[in-house]
């Protein structure tokens, strides 16, 4: 069973971060309402773009090439995820485990070389 007490600092940090971010968002809102400066008008609530009205949606279409980069990132991310249990259990698996991981890495190096050679990693 996992010793959960080692995660307590992370939980405390999380609680502090949550409290701080909530304070930064809601404190100015509350203060402005209590001191009477809260007075929104239509002009105040428009998005500010150097003084002229926004003429374009902030959402623009992404290039399909981002998708390829994201897929390659997922694959190498999974590879990295396999490395963690391998690294901590190497004393139990021994040379067989080491060789297994080297073969696995070699398989992905082939893929990496292919990606490099076809120019999938190049932007322009």
């Amino acid at each position: 069973m996992v010793d959960l007490s080692q995660y307590l600092p992370i939980l405390i940090f999380l609680a502090i971060a949550l409290a701080m971010s909530a304070a930064f968002v809601f404190l100015p809102m509350g203060v402005s309402r209590l001191t009477g400066t809260h007075n929104p008008t239509a002009n105040k609530l428009t998005e500010y773009e150097c003084g002229f009205p926004a003429f374009e949606d902030s959402r623009s279409q992404f290039d399909v090439r981002f998708y390829l980069v994201a897929i390659l990132f997922i694959i190498f991310d999974l590879e990295a995820a396999f490395l963690f249990p391998w690294a901590v259990s190497l004393d139990l698996t021994g040379w067989a485990g080491w060789v297994t991981m080297m073969i696995f890495l070699f398989e992905l190096i082939i893929g990496f070389a292919y990606a490099w050679k076809t120019g999938a990693l190049e932007w322009e």
């Binding site: 249990p85 391998w86 259990s89 139990l92 698996t93 297994t100």
Partner: peptide
């Protein structure tokens, strides 16, 4: 349990 997973997965 990470070590347990590793010990099983790589053997």
């Amino acid at each position: 349990n990470i070590e347990n997973i590793g010990a099983l997965l790589y053997s």
